[in-house]
């Protein structure tokens, strides 16, 4: 039963990921991305990580895809370029390299199961307290610094975006045209 669900979702996941790359319409690509995020949420649920699955749906499927769609809709015609053919020498090299990397990682993962130390959180504990509570407690004790640093990271993002997006005056473009040489 579980295997059947996994195979269905896995095929859907790979197909939608390919759809993101090969679709010529950016809106369709974004919608394929949504499907891909949802399948990953299903994977998390199947691995007994219900909290992570819900966060995946809320944050990625809910917020990020909507944001991407917003940008696509606002920019509209300016986005995208016509790709006449995917079969180019450069893409061939990229595919070969990607296959080599996939083979190495795939062999490593399938031949040698992950061997890491087990954490403190047994299934019984999770049964008793629930995942959300345990993740919350861990975040605000063991991982307190990470939570605070994530706040600093958001601050950096906000300051940077405000500067780049500010449009207080019409500035003439100056400077060299972008250089092409390596």
């Amino acid at each position: 039963m579980e295997l059947t669900i996994f195979i269905i979702v896995a095929v859907l996941s790979v197909v939608s990921a390919l759809g993101v790359i090969f679709n010529k319409n950016v809106v369709y690509s974004a919608l394929f991305l949504l499907v891909n995020f949802l399948t990953i949420a299903v994977f998390y649920l199947m691995l007994n990580a219900q909290f992570l699955g819900m966060v995946q749906i809320l944050v990625y499927a809910g917020a990020i895809v909507v944001l991407i769609l917003f940008v696509v809709m606002l920019l509209g015609e300016q986005l995208g370029e016509d790709i006449s053919s995917w079969v180019t020498p450069a893409n061939g090299v990229i595919i070969v390299l990607a296959l080599i990397l996939l083979t190495i990682i795939g062999t490593a993962v399938t031949d040698y199961p992950t061997t890491g130390a087990k954490g403190d959180f047994t299934p019984e504990l999770i049964q008793e307290y629930g995942q959300a509570e345990m993740i919350g407690v861990t975040l605000f004790t063991d991982y307190l610094l990470s939570v605070q640093l994530a706040g600093v990271l958001l601050l950096v993002g906000i300051v940077g975006v405000i500067w780049l997006a500010r449009n207080d005056e019409q500035l003439p473009a100056t400077g060299d045209v972008p250089t092409k040489e390596a």
Binding site: L153, V156, G160, W163, L164, A173, G175, D176, P178
Partner: peptide, 22 residues
């Protein structure tokens, strides 16, 4: 997290001169 805090600030600093194309 440190890497990202550093890098995101540097991306904006690299493009800080909005008048310059390069």
């Amino acid at each position: 997290l440190g890497l990202e805090i550093m890098s995101i600030a540097l991306y904006v600093l690299a493009g800080f001169n909005r008048r310059s194309i390069s």
